[in-house]
Nucleic acid binder design. Structure first.
Length: 546
RNA sequence: GGGCCCGUAGCUCAGCUGGAUAGAGCAACGGACUUCUAAUCCGUAGGUCGGAGGUUCGAAUCCUCCCGGGCCCGCCA
Protein backbone atom coordinates (compact mmCIF):
# COMPACT_ATOMS: atom_id res chain seq x y z
CA UNK A 1 0.00 0.00 0.00
CA UNK A 2 2.95 2.28 0.53
CA UNK A 3 3.86 1.71 -3.10
CA UNK A 4 0.35 2.56 -4.18
CA UNK A 5 0.15 5.76 -2.18
CA UNK A 6 3.61 6.78 -3.28
CA UNK A 7 2.62 6.25 -6.87
CA UNK A 8 -0.42 8.49 -6.53
CA UNK A 9 1.57 11.14 -4.74
CA UNK A 10 4.24 11.03 -7.44
CA UNK A 11 1.59 11.48 -10.08
CA UNK A 12 0.21 14.55 -8.37
CA UNK A 13 3.56 16.08 -7.56
CA UNK A 14 4.87 15.79 -11.08
CA UNK A 15 1.67 17.37 -12.31
CA UNK A 16 1.99 20.33 -9.95
CA UNK A 17 5.73 20.78 -9.40
CA UNK A 18 7.36 18.86 -12.20
CA UNK A 19 10.13 16.27 -11.96
CA UNK A 20 12.17 18.26 -9.41
CA UNK A 21 9.45 17.57 -6.89
CA UNK A 22 9.34 13.87 -7.60
CA UNK A 23 12.97 13.47 -6.51
CA UNK A 24 12.19 14.29 -2.90
CA UNK A 25 9.85 11.31 -2.81
CA UNK A 26 12.86 9.06 -2.37
CA UNK A 27 13.60 10.70 0.97
CA UNK A 28 10.02 11.05 2.11
CA UNK A 29 8.55 8.79 4.72
CA UNK A 30 5.34 6.84 4.23
CA UNK A 31 4.48 5.41 7.60
CA UNK A 32 1.57 4.15 9.56
CA UNK A 33 0.79 7.03 11.93
CA UNK A 34 1.06 6.52 15.65
CA UNK A 35 -2.49 7.69 16.27
CA UNK A 36 -5.38 6.11 14.47
CA UNK A 37 -7.16 9.48 14.14
CA UNK A 38 -4.43 10.29 11.64
CA UNK A 39 -5.70 7.67 9.25
CA UNK A 40 -4.03 4.65 7.72
CA UNK A 41 -0.89 6.16 6.25
CA UNK A 42 0.90 9.46 6.58
CA UNK A 43 3.61 11.19 4.65
CA UNK A 44 5.90 14.14 5.28
CA UNK A 45 6.57 14.96 1.61
CA UNK A 46 5.20 18.47 2.00
CA UNK A 47 7.92 19.33 4.52
CA UNK A 48 10.63 18.11 2.18
CA UNK A 49 9.03 19.75 -0.81
CA UNK A 50 8.87 23.03 1.07
CA UNK A 51 12.64 23.40 0.85
CA UNK A 52 12.70 22.71 -2.88
CA UNK A 53 9.83 24.89 -4.06
CA UNK A 54 10.13 27.53 -1.36
CA UNK A 55 6.56 27.52 -0.15
CA UNK A 56 5.22 26.70 3.27
CA UNK A 57 4.59 23.01 4.00
CA UNK A 58 0.96 23.79 4.80
CA UNK A 59 0.30 25.41 1.43
CA UNK A 60 1.92 22.59 -0.46
CA UNK A 61 0.05 19.97 1.52
CA UNK A 62 -3.25 21.73 0.81
CA UNK A 63 -2.55 21.73 -2.88
CA UNK A 64 -1.58 18.04 -2.96
CA UNK A 65 -4.54 17.03 -0.86
CA UNK A 66 -6.95 18.78 -3.17
CA UNK A 67 -5.82 16.56 -6.05
CA UNK A 68 -5.23 13.39 -4.06
CA UNK A 69 -8.79 13.44 -2.79
CA UNK A 70 -9.96 12.57 -6.28
CA UNK A 71 -8.56 9.03 -6.16
CA UNK A 72 -11.16 6.42 -5.31
CA UNK A 73 -8.59 4.46 -3.27
CA UNK A 74 -8.81 7.07 -0.54
CA UNK A 75 -11.83 7.73 1.55
CA UNK A 76 -10.26 10.81 3.00
CA UNK A 77 -7.03 12.77 2.52
CA UNK A 78 -6.28 15.63 4.84
CA UNK A 79 -3.62 18.00 6.08
CA UNK A 80 -2.64 17.91 9.74
CA UNK A 81 0.14 19.01 12.03
CA UNK A 82 1.15 21.85 9.73
CA UNK A 83 1.98 19.77 6.70
CA UNK A 84 1.51 16.06 7.22
CA UNK A 85 -0.75 14.43 4.69
CA UNK A 86 -2.92 11.75 6.20
CA UNK A 87 -4.60 9.11 4.09
CA UNK A 88 -7.65 7.15 5.11
CA UNK A 89 -8.10 4.19 2.81
CA UNK A 90 -11.37 3.30 1.20
CA UNK A 91 -13.07 0.08 2.18
CA UNK A 92 -12.43 -1.13 -1.34
CA UNK A 93 -8.67 -0.69 -0.85
CA UNK A 94 -8.77 -2.60 2.42
CA UNK A 95 -10.53 -5.45 0.67
CA UNK A 96 -7.87 -5.46 -2.01
CA UNK A 97 -5.11 -5.56 0.59
CA UNK A 98 -6.72 -8.42 2.45
CA UNK A 99 -7.13 -10.45 -0.71
CA UNK A 100 -3.44 -9.99 -1.35
CA UNK A 101 -2.64 -11.11 2.18
CA UNK A 102 -4.62 -14.31 1.78
CA UNK A 103 -3.80 -15.16 -1.79
CA UNK A 104 -0.32 -13.87 -2.54
CA UNK A 105 3.18 -13.82 -1.19
CA UNK A 106 2.67 -10.21 -0.28
CA UNK A 107 5.64 -10.18 2.08
CA UNK A 108 8.39 -10.79 -0.46
CA UNK A 109 10.03 -8.01 -2.41
CA UNK A 110 13.18 -7.15 -4.27
CA UNK A 111 14.78 -4.29 -2.37
CA UNK A 112 17.97 -6.37 -2.30
CA UNK A 113 18.05 -6.39 -6.11
CA UNK A 114 19.84 -9.71 -6.20
CA UNK A 115 22.93 -8.43 -4.40
CA UNK A 116 25.21 -11.24 -3.29
CA UNK A 117 25.90 -11.18 0.42
CA UNK A 118 28.11 -13.44 2.47
CA UNK A 119 26.82 -13.75 5.99
CA UNK A 120 29.25 -15.27 8.44
CA UNK A 121 28.08 -16.12 11.93
CA UNK A 122 28.73 -18.25 15.00
CA UNK A 123 32.22 -19.30 13.87
CA UNK A 124 32.85 -20.73 17.33
CA UNK A 125 36.19 -22.37 18.00
CA UNK A 126 35.94 -26.17 17.92
CA UNK A 127 37.48 -26.30 21.36
CA UNK A 128 34.29 -26.68 23.36
CA UNK A 129 30.52 -26.80 23.21
CA UNK A 130 28.51 -23.77 22.13
CA UNK A 131 27.44 -21.51 24.93
CA UNK A 132 24.37 -19.30 25.07
CA UNK A 133 26.20 -16.29 23.61
CA UNK A 134 26.97 -18.28 20.47
CA UNK A 135 23.31 -19.20 20.34
CA UNK A 136 22.26 -15.58 20.22
CA UNK A 137 24.59 -14.86 17.32
CA UNK A 138 23.36 -18.00 15.59
CA UNK A 139 19.72 -16.98 15.79
CA UNK A 140 20.40 -13.39 14.75
CA UNK A 141 22.37 -14.62 11.74
CA UNK A 142 19.87 -17.29 10.83
CA UNK A 143 16.83 -15.00 10.91
CA UNK A 144 18.67 -12.17 9.20
CA UNK A 145 19.65 -14.51 6.37
CA UNK A 146 16.06 -15.67 5.92
CA UNK A 147 14.72 -12.15 5.85
CA UNK A 148 17.37 -10.93 3.44
CA UNK A 149 16.52 -13.76 1.11
CA UNK A 150 12.85 -12.82 1.20
CA UNK A 151 13.70 -9.24 0.39
CA UNK A 152 15.70 -10.01 -2.70
CA UNK A 153 19.27 -10.57 -1.56
CA UNK A 154 21.26 -13.61 -2.56
CA UNK A 155 22.64 -14.70 0.77
CA UNK A 156 25.21 -17.35 1.53
CA UNK A 157 25.66 -18.46 5.11
CA UNK A 158 29.08 -19.45 6.30
CA UNK A 159 30.70 -20.81 9.44
CA UNK A 160 34.43 -20.14 9.79
CA UNK A 161 36.13 -22.96 11.63
CA UNK A 162 39.15 -21.89 13.64
CA UNK A 163 40.82 -25.25 13.32
CA UNK A 164 44.38 -24.00 13.31
CA UNK A 165 46.68 -22.27 15.71
CA UNK A 166 47.39 -22.17 19.35
CA UNK A 167 43.93 -22.89 20.72
CA UNK A 168 43.90 -26.18 18.83
CA UNK A 169 47.27 -27.09 20.29
CA UNK A 170 45.92 -26.27 23.74
CA UNK A 171 42.87 -28.38 23.07
CA UNK A 172 45.10 -31.33 22.17
CA UNK A 173 47.26 -30.79 25.22
CA UNK A 174 44.25 -30.58 27.52
CA UNK A 175 42.76 -33.79 26.18
CA UNK A 176 46.11 -35.56 26.36
CA UNK A 177 46.64 -34.54 29.97
CA UNK A 178 43.16 -35.67 30.95
CA UNK A 179 43.78 -38.97 29.19
CA UNK A 180 46.97 -39.43 31.20
CA UNK A 181 45.04 -38.62 34.32
CA UNK A 182 42.42 -41.23 33.43
CA UNK A 183 45.26 -43.70 33.00
CA UNK A 184 46.17 -43.05 36.59
CA UNK A 185 49.12 -40.73 36.09
CA UNK A 186 49.92 -37.55 37.95
CA UNK A 187 49.73 -34.52 35.71
CA UNK A 188 50.21 -30.83 36.12
CA UNK A 189 47.58 -28.73 34.40
CA UNK A 190 48.87 -25.51 32.83
CA UNK A 191 47.04 -22.28 33.52
CA UNK A 192 45.81 -21.73 29.97
CA UNK A 193 44.56 -25.27 29.32
CA UNK A 194 40.87 -25.97 28.81
CA UNK A 195 39.36 -27.17 32.05
CA UNK A 196 35.75 -27.98 31.25
CA UNK A 197 34.36 -31.39 32.12
CA UNK A 198 33.72 -32.02 28.44
CA UNK A 199 37.49 -32.36 27.94
CA UNK A 200 37.46 -35.40 30.23
CA UNK A 201 34.63 -36.84 28.16
CA UNK A 202 36.57 -36.33 24.97
CA UNK A 203 39.63 -37.95 26.56
CA UNK A 204 37.55 -40.93 27.57
CA UNK A 205 36.22 -41.31 24.01
CA UNK A 206 39.70 -41.01 22.60
CA UNK A 207 41.07 -43.68 24.93
CA UNK A 208 38.46 -46.09 23.62
CA UNK A 209 39.89 -45.90 20.12
CA UNK A 210 43.48 -45.19 21.08
CA UNK A 211 44.24 -46.73 24.47
CA UNK A 212 47.99 -46.33 23.99
CA UNK A 213 47.75 -42.54 23.88
CA UNK A 214 49.21 -41.82 27.35
CA UNK A 215 52.32 -43.80 26.39
CA UNK A 216 53.02 -41.89 23.17
CA UNK A 217 55.61 -39.13 23.03
CA UNK A 218 53.94 -35.88 24.06
CA UNK A 219 54.30 -34.14 20.68
CA UNK A 220 52.63 -36.93 18.82
CA UNK A 221 49.98 -37.54 21.46
CA UNK A 222 48.96 -33.89 21.53
CA UNK A 223 48.63 -33.86 17.76
CA UNK A 224 46.45 -36.96 17.79
CA UNK A 225 44.33 -35.62 20.62
CA UNK A 226 43.92 -32.25 18.92
CA UNK A 227 42.75 -33.80 15.68
CA UNK A 228 40.36 -36.12 17.48
CA UNK A 229 38.98 -33.46 19.82
CA UNK A 230 38.53 -30.90 17.11
CA UNK A 231 36.45 -33.23 14.99
CA UNK A 232 34.36 -34.48 17.85
CA UNK A 233 33.67 -31.02 19.18
CA UNK A 234 32.88 -29.65 15.74
CA UNK A 235 30.38 -32.46 15.32
CA UNK A 236 28.78 -31.48 18.62
CA UNK A 237 28.63 -27.86 17.55
CA UNK A 238 26.93 -28.92 14.35
CA UNK A 239 24.44 -31.02 16.26
CA UNK A 240 23.62 -28.13 18.58
CA UNK A 241 23.10 -25.80 15.65
CA UNK A 242 20.87 -28.31 13.96
CA UNK A 243 18.87 -28.63 17.10
CA UNK A 244 18.59 -24.84 17.24
CA UNK A 245 17.37 -25.00 13.59
CA UNK A 246 20.28 -22.93 12.37
CA UNK A 247 21.77 -23.81 9.01
CA UNK A 248 24.81 -22.98 6.93
CA UNK A 249 25.65 -23.27 3.25
CA UNK A 250 29.35 -23.71 3.84
CA UNK A 251 31.89 -24.50 6.53
CA UNK A 252 35.17 -22.75 5.90
CA UNK A 253 38.31 -24.17 7.45
CA UNK A 254 41.03 -21.84 8.69
CA UNK A 255 43.50 -24.67 8.39
CA UNK A 256 42.73 -25.00 4.69
CA UNK A 257 44.01 -21.47 4.19
CA UNK A 258 47.42 -22.57 5.41
CA UNK A 259 47.35 -25.83 3.51
CA UNK A 260 46.60 -24.06 0.25
CA UNK A 261 49.27 -21.44 0.92
CA UNK A 262 46.66 -18.68 1.04
CA UNK A 263 48.11 -16.96 4.06
CA UNK A 264 51.55 -16.65 2.49
CA UNK A 265 49.97 -15.60 -0.78
CA UNK A 266 48.01 -12.70 0.66
CA UNK A 267 50.96 -11.53 2.74
CA UNK A 268 53.12 -11.59 -0.35
CA UNK A 269 50.56 -9.48 -2.14
CA UNK A 270 50.51 -6.97 0.70
CA UNK A 271 54.28 -6.95 0.76
CA UNK A 272 54.37 -6.12 -2.94
CA UNK A 273 52.13 -3.19 -2.18
CA UNK A 274 54.74 -2.06 0.35
CA UNK A 275 52.36 -2.46 3.26
CA UNK A 276 54.37 -4.98 5.24
CA UNK A 277 57.60 -4.42 7.10
CA UNK A 278 59.83 -6.30 9.52
CA UNK A 279 60.53 -5.13 13.02
CA UNK A 280 62.12 -7.03 15.92
CA UNK A 281 61.94 -10.24 13.96
CA UNK A 282 58.22 -10.01 13.32
CA UNK A 283 56.22 -9.03 10.23
CA UNK A 284 53.85 -6.08 10.59
CA UNK A 285 51.00 -4.80 8.45
CA UNK A 286 50.72 -1.03 8.18
CA UNK A 287 47.13 -0.86 9.30
CA UNK A 288 47.69 2.67 10.62
CA UNK A 289 47.63 3.85 7.00
CA UNK A 290 43.96 2.87 7.02
CA UNK A 291 42.81 4.29 10.30
CA UNK A 292 43.93 1.69 12.83
CA UNK A 293 45.55 2.82 16.12
CA UNK A 294 48.74 0.92 15.54
CA UNK A 295 50.30 -1.48 13.11
CA UNK A 296 49.56 -5.15 13.67
CA UNK A 297 51.74 -8.23 13.70
CA UNK A 298 50.92 -10.82 11.08
CA UNK A 299 53.85 -13.17 11.69
CA UNK A 300 55.43 -13.45 15.08
CA UNK A 301 59.17 -13.51 15.63
CA UNK A 302 58.95 -17.24 16.36
CA UNK A 303 57.72 -17.73 12.77
CA UNK A 304 54.09 -18.46 13.60
CA UNK A 305 51.36 -16.55 11.89
CA UNK A 306 48.87 -14.67 14.02
CA UNK A 307 45.15 -15.19 13.93
CA UNK A 308 44.95 -11.85 12.17
CA UNK A 309 47.06 -13.19 9.30
CA UNK A 310 44.69 -16.02 8.52
CA UNK A 311 41.77 -13.67 8.95
CA UNK A 312 43.22 -11.44 6.26
CA UNK A 313 43.56 -14.45 4.00
CA UNK A 314 40.01 -15.46 4.81
CA UNK A 315 38.58 -12.07 3.94
CA UNK A 316 40.72 -11.93 0.83
CA UNK A 317 39.10 -15.18 -0.15
CA UNK A 318 35.66 -13.68 0.45
CA UNK A 319 36.56 -10.68 -1.68
CA UNK A 320 37.71 -12.91 -4.51
CA UNK A 321 34.52 -14.91 -4.38
CA UNK A 322 32.87 -11.76 -5.68
CA UNK A 323 30.28 -10.87 -3.06
CA UNK A 324 28.78 -7.42 -3.18
CA UNK A 325 29.00 -7.28 0.57
CA UNK A 326 30.18 -9.30 3.54
CA UNK A 327 28.51 -9.30 6.92
CA UNK A 328 30.31 -10.79 9.93
CA UNK A 329 28.52 -11.43 13.19
CA UNK A 330 30.89 -11.32 16.17
CA UNK A 331 30.72 -11.25 19.92
CA UNK A 332 30.81 -7.68 21.19
CA UNK A 333 34.09 -8.33 23.00
CA UNK A 334 35.73 -8.42 19.56
CA UNK A 335 34.77 -4.89 18.69
CA UNK A 336 38.34 -3.69 19.05
CA UNK A 337 39.23 -6.03 16.22
CA UNK A 338 37.04 -4.27 13.64
CA UNK A 339 39.41 -1.42 12.70
CA UNK A 340 42.26 -3.74 11.86
CA UNK A 341 40.18 -6.08 9.71
CA UNK A 342 38.65 -3.13 7.88
CA UNK A 343 42.15 -1.75 7.46
CA UNK A 344 43.26 -5.03 5.95
CA UNK A 345 40.32 -4.97 3.55
CA UNK A 346 41.20 -1.48 2.46
CA UNK A 347 44.82 -2.53 2.08
CA UNK A 348 43.59 -5.21 -0.28
CA UNK A 349 41.91 -2.55 -2.38
CA UNK A 350 38.32 -2.92 -1.27
CA UNK A 351 36.26 -0.27 0.48
CA UNK A 352 36.14 -0.83 4.25
CA UNK A 353 32.36 -0.45 4.01
CA UNK A 354 32.27 -3.65 2.02
CA UNK A 355 32.52 -5.46 5.34
CA UNK A 356 29.82 -4.89 7.90
CA UNK A 357 30.25 -6.20 11.40
CA UNK A 358 27.28 -6.92 13.62
CA UNK A 359 28.17 -7.17 17.28
CA UNK A 360 26.27 -9.45 19.59
CA UNK A 361 26.14 -8.42 23.22
CA UNK A 362 26.34 -10.69 26.21
CA UNK A 363 23.56 -13.03 27.30
CA UNK A 364 22.92 -13.40 31.00
CA UNK A 365 20.68 -16.16 32.31
CA UNK A 366 18.36 -15.61 35.23
CA UNK A 367 16.45 -18.20 37.20
CA UNK A 368 14.50 -17.47 40.34
CA UNK A 369 15.83 -13.93 40.19
CA UNK A 370 19.40 -15.21 40.41
CA UNK A 371 21.98 -14.87 37.68
CA UNK A 372 23.53 -18.11 36.46
CA UNK A 373 27.19 -17.29 36.00
CA UNK A 374 29.36 -18.37 33.16
CA UNK A 375 33.05 -18.15 32.54
CA UNK A 376 34.64 -20.01 29.72
CA UNK A 377 38.08 -20.11 31.28
CA UNK A 378 37.01 -22.00 34.32
CA UNK A 379 34.95 -24.28 32.13
CA UNK A 380 31.69 -23.77 33.97
CA UNK A 381 29.99 -21.76 31.21
CA UNK A 382 26.38 -22.44 30.41
CA UNK A 383 26.04 -24.64 27.35
CA UNK A 384 23.49 -23.72 24.71
CA UNK A 385 22.30 -27.31 24.71
CA UNK A 386 21.33 -27.09 28.35
CA UNK A 387 19.23 -23.99 27.70
CA UNK A 388 17.49 -25.57 24.71
CA UNK A 389 16.57 -28.57 26.82
CA UNK A 390 15.46 -26.40 29.70
CA UNK A 391 13.08 -24.04 27.88
CA UNK A 392 12.66 -25.48 24.38
CA UNK A 393 13.97 -24.28 21.05
CA UNK A 394 10.96 -22.06 20.26
CA UNK A 395 11.51 -20.00 23.40
CA UNK A 396 15.28 -19.82 22.89
CA UNK A 397 14.93 -18.50 19.37
CA UNK A 398 12.19 -16.03 20.21
CA UNK A 399 13.85 -14.72 23.36
CA UNK A 400 17.16 -14.15 21.63
CA UNK A 401 15.33 -11.73 19.35
CA UNK A 402 13.56 -9.81 22.07
CA UNK A 403 16.23 -7.14 22.26
CA UNK A 404 18.38 -5.40 19.75
CA UNK A 405 21.54 -7.42 19.14
CA UNK A 406 23.88 -4.75 20.49
CA UNK A 407 22.26 -4.47 23.90
CA UNK A 408 22.94 -7.02 26.64
CA UNK A 409 20.21 -9.62 27.01
CA UNK A 410 18.86 -10.87 30.31
CA UNK A 411 17.28 -14.23 29.59
CA UNK A 412 14.63 -15.02 32.17
CA UNK A 413 14.26 -18.78 32.28
CA UNK A 414 11.19 -18.66 34.50
CA UNK A 415 9.50 -16.36 32.02
CA UNK A 416 10.42 -18.57 29.09
CA UNK A 417 8.75 -21.49 30.87
CA UNK A 418 5.67 -19.56 31.84
CA UNK A 419 2.48 -20.45 30.00
CA UNK A 420 0.84 -17.09 30.44
CA UNK A 421 0.52 -13.93 28.41
CA UNK A 422 3.57 -12.52 30.16
CA UNK A 423 5.52 -14.93 27.99
CA UNK A 424 5.61 -13.36 24.51
CA UNK A 425 6.19 -16.66 22.72
CA UNK A 426 2.99 -18.09 24.13
CA UNK A 427 1.17 -14.88 23.47
CA UNK A 428 1.93 -15.04 19.74
CA UNK A 429 1.55 -18.79 19.40
CA UNK A 430 -1.73 -18.65 21.24
CA UNK A 431 -3.08 -16.14 18.73
CA UNK A 432 -2.34 -18.61 15.96
CA UNK A 433 -3.88 -21.56 17.80
CA UNK A 434 -6.94 -19.51 18.60
CA UNK A 435 -7.52 -18.71 14.94
CA UNK A 436 -7.10 -22.33 13.93
CA UNK A 437 -9.68 -23.21 16.49
CA UNK A 438 -12.12 -20.65 15.12
CA UNK A 439 -11.62 -21.89 11.58
CA UNK A 440 -12.20 -25.49 12.67
CA UNK A 441 -15.30 -24.56 14.57
CA UNK A 442 -16.66 -22.58 11.64
CA UNK A 443 -16.06 -25.45 9.26
CA UNK A 444 -18.01 -27.77 11.53
CA UNK A 445 -20.90 -25.36 11.36
CA UNK A 446 -20.75 -25.17 7.61
CA UNK A 447 -19.03 -21.80 7.13
CA UNK A 448 -16.18 -21.15 4.70
CA UNK A 449 -13.90 -18.16 4.43
CA UNK A 450 -15.00 -16.05 1.49
CA UNK A 451 -13.74 -12.85 -0.16
CA UNK A 452 -17.22 -12.02 -1.40
CA UNK A 453 -18.20 -9.32 1.07
CA UNK A 454 -14.98 -7.94 2.49
CA UNK A 455 -16.46 -4.46 2.51
CA UNK A 456 -18.34 -5.57 5.62
CA UNK A 457 -15.02 -5.56 7.52
CA UNK A 458 -15.23 -1.90 8.33
CA UNK A 459 -14.78 -1.70 12.11
CA UNK A 460 -11.61 -0.04 13.41
CA UNK A 461 -10.40 -3.39 14.76
CA UNK A 462 -10.84 -5.09 11.41
CA UNK A 463 -9.21 -2.35 9.41
CA UNK A 464 -6.34 -2.28 11.87
CA UNK A 465 -5.86 -6.03 11.53
CA UNK A 466 -5.78 -5.91 7.76
CA UNK A 467 -3.25 -3.15 7.73
CA UNK A 468 -1.12 -4.87 10.38
CA UNK A 469 -0.99 -8.04 8.31
CA UNK A 470 0.26 -6.17 5.31
CA UNK A 471 2.84 -4.39 7.45
CA UNK A 472 4.85 -7.60 7.50
CA UNK A 473 6.08 -6.65 4.06
CA UNK A 474 7.58 -3.41 5.35
CA UNK A 475 8.88 -4.87 8.58
CA UNK A 476 10.87 -7.40 6.60
CA UNK A 477 12.31 -4.59 4.52
CA UNK A 478 13.30 -2.75 7.69
CA UNK A 479 14.85 -5.89 9.17
CA UNK A 480 16.92 -6.44 6.05
CA UNK A 481 17.97 -2.84 5.59
CA UNK A 482 18.89 -2.20 9.19
CA UNK A 483 20.08 -5.74 9.91
CA UNK A 484 17.82 -5.86 12.95
CA UNK A 485 15.97 -9.16 13.15
CA UNK A 486 14.52 -8.36 16.57
CA UNK A 487 11.97 -6.13 14.83
CA UNK A 488 10.20 -9.23 13.65
CA UNK A 489 9.36 -10.43 17.17
CA UNK A 490 8.02 -7.00 18.06
CA UNK A 491 5.95 -6.98 14.93
CA UNK A 492 4.44 -10.38 15.73
CA UNK A 493 3.60 -9.35 19.28
CA UNK A 494 1.82 -6.30 17.89
CA UNK A 495 -0.04 -8.35 15.30
CA UNK A 496 -1.11 -10.87 17.95
CA UNK A 497 -2.24 -8.01 20.15
CA UNK A 498 -4.45 -6.51 17.45
CA UNK A 499 -5.88 -9.96 16.79
CA UNK A 500 -6.76 -10.56 20.45
CA UNK A 501 -8.31 -7.12 20.60
CA UNK A 502 -10.48 -7.89 17.56
CA UNK A 503 -11.39 -11.29 18.92
CA UNK A 504 -12.61 -9.96 22.23
CA UNK A 505 -14.75 -7.33 20.61
CA UNK A 506 -16.27 -9.15 17.65
CA UNK A 507 -17.74 -12.58 17.31
CA UNK A 508 -16.57 -14.32 14.17
CA UNK A 509 -19.00 -17.19 13.75
CA UNK A 510 -22.57 -16.00 13.81
CA UNK A 511 -25.35 -18.14 12.35
CA UNK A 512 -27.60 -15.17 11.69
CA UNK A 513 -25.09 -13.29 9.58
CA UNK A 514 -23.64 -15.62 7.03
CA UNK A 515 -22.01 -12.99 4.81
CA UNK A 516 -20.30 -11.22 7.67
CA UNK A 517 -19.19 -14.53 9.17
CA UNK A 518 -17.59 -15.65 5.94
CA UNK A 519 -15.88 -12.33 5.40
CA UNK A 520 -14.52 -12.45 8.94
CA UNK A 521 -13.34 -16.00 8.41
CA UNK A 522 -11.44 -14.73 5.39
CA UNK A 523 -9.83 -12.12 7.60
CA UNK A 524 -9.08 -14.75 10.22
CA UNK A 525 -7.40 -16.86 7.58
CA UNK A 526 -5.35 -13.85 6.49
CA UNK A 527 -4.16 -13.15 10.02
CA UNK A 528 -3.46 -16.80 10.64
CA UNK A 529 -1.40 -16.99 7.49
CA UNK A 530 0.55 -13.88 8.41
CA UNK A 531 1.30 -15.25 11.87
CA UNK A 532 2.34 -18.54 10.33
CA UNK A 533 4.65 -16.83 7.87
CA UNK A 534 6.14 -14.58 10.55
CA UNK A 535 6.74 -17.41 12.98
CA UNK A 536 8.06 -19.46 10.08
CA UNK A 537 10.69 -16.84 9.34
CA UNK A 538 11.73 -16.95 12.99
CA UNK A 539 11.60 -20.72 12.62
CA UNK A 540 9.40 -20.91 15.68
CA UNK A 541 6.49 -23.33 15.54
CA UNK A 542 2.95 -22.12 14.87
CA UNK A 543 0.84 -24.68 16.74
CA UNK A 544 -2.75 -25.40 15.65
CA UNK A 545 -3.71 -26.30 19.18
CA UNK A 546 -2.40 -25.34 22.61
C1' G B 1 44.84 7.58 29.03
C1' G B 2 42.56 6.14 23.99
C1' G B 3 38.44 3.58 21.40
C1' C B 4 33.44 1.25 20.87
C1' C B 5 28.46 0.58 22.91
C1' C B 6 24.69 2.10 26.23
C1' G B 7 21.64 5.76 29.58
C1' U B 8 13.72 6.43 27.61
C1' A B 9 7.77 4.84 33.15
C1' G B 10 9.10 1.28 39.61
C1' C B 11 11.50 -3.10 36.41
C1' U B 12 12.86 -5.09 31.30
C1' C B 13 13.10 -2.67 26.95
C1' A B 14 10.92 -0.73 21.75
C1' G B 15 11.13 3.84 19.09
C1' C B 16 16.83 6.78 16.57
C1' U B 17 18.53 7.72 7.73
C1' G B 18 14.76 14.55 12.51
C1' G B 19 8.24 14.83 12.27
C1' A B 20 2.19 15.25 15.12
C1' U B 21 0.07 14.64 22.37
C1' A B 22 7.19 9.65 23.52
C1' G B 23 5.16 3.54 23.23
C1' A B 24 4.87 -1.90 24.78
C1' G B 25 5.39 -5.89 28.31
C1' C B 26 5.90 -6.92 33.48
C1' A B 27 4.70 -5.12 38.38
C1' A B 28 0.27 -1.95 40.92
C1' C B 29 -4.96 -0.77 41.07
C1' G B 30 -10.23 -1.36 39.00
C1' G B 31 -13.30 -4.08 35.59
C1' A B 32 -15.03 -8.15 31.59
C1' C B 33 -16.06 -15.45 31.18
C1' U B 34 -24.33 -19.20 30.15
C1' U B 35 -21.49 -17.34 23.82
C1' C B 36 -15.85 -19.15 18.39
C1' U B 37 -9.49 -21.19 23.38
C1' A B 38 -9.99 -15.83 29.85
C1' A B 39 -2.93 -18.96 27.76
C1' U B 40 -7.50 -13.27 26.33
C1' C B 41 -9.38 -8.24 26.59
C1' C B 42 -10.75 -3.14 28.55
C1' G B 43 -9.66 0.83 31.91
C1' U B 44 -6.61 3.74 35.78
C1' A B 45 -1.97 5.29 37.41
C1' G B 46 3.09 5.98 36.15
C1' G B 47 8.11 10.30 32.13
C1' U B 48 12.96 16.95 33.29
C1' C B 49 13.74 10.56 26.91
C1' G B 50 21.19 11.01 32.06
C1' G B 51 22.63 16.75 32.08
C1' A B 52 23.94 21.35 29.38
C1' G B 53 24.55 23.81 24.95
C1' G B 54 24.07 23.84 19.42
C1' U B 55 21.93 22.88 14.33
C1' U B 56 16.04 24.33 12.40
C1' C B 57 9.81 25.23 10.77
C1' G B 58 10.48 20.90 14.17
C1' A B 59 15.29 16.97 18.38
C1' A B 60 14.42 10.94 22.41
C1' U B 61 16.53 10.88 17.25
C1' C B 62 21.85 14.83 14.34
C1' C B 63 26.59 17.73 16.42
C1' U B 64 29.79 19.32 20.80
C1' C B 65 30.92 19.03 25.92
C1' C B 66 29.93 16.90 30.74
C1' C B 67 28.08 12.91 34.18
C1' G B 68 27.07 7.65 34.92
C1' G B 69 27.48 2.21 33.38
C1' G B 70 29.53 -1.87 30.30
C1' C B 71 33.22 -3.78 27.01
C1' C B 72 38.01 -3.55 24.47
C1' C B 73 43.05 -1.71 24.05
C1' G B 74 48.85 -8.76 23.45
C1' C B 75 54.31 -10.96 18.78
C1' C B 76 46.20 -14.36 22.41
C1' A B 77 42.18 -16.16 19.60
Amino acid sequence: MKELVKEKVAEVISEVYGDDGVEVLERASFEKPKKKEFGDLATNVAFLLAKVVRQSPGTIAQELVRKLSAFPEFEKVEVAGGGFINFTFSQELFSRILREVVEEKFYICDVGRGKRVLLEYVSANPTGPLHVGHGRGAVVGDVLSRVMKLTGYRVEREFYINDAGRQIYLLGLSIYLRAKELAGKEVEFPEDAYRGDYIVEVARELLKVKPELPELPEDEAVKVAAEFGKELLLKEIQEDLKKLRVEFDSWFSEKSLYERGKVEEVLKLLKEKGLIYEKEGALWLKTTLFGDDKDRVVRRSNGEYTYFASDIAYHWDKIKRGYDRAIDIWGADHHGYIPRVKAAIEALGKSPDWLEVILIQLVKLFKGGQELKMSKRKGDFIPLRWLMEEVGVDAVRFFFLLKRHDTPLDFDIDLALSQKSENPVYYVQYAHARLCSVLDKAREEGFRPSPENLNLLSSPEERELISNCYLLRYELQAVARKREPHRLTYYLIELASSLHRFYNKHRVVNRDERELTEARLYLVEGVRRTLEVGLGILNVSAPRRM
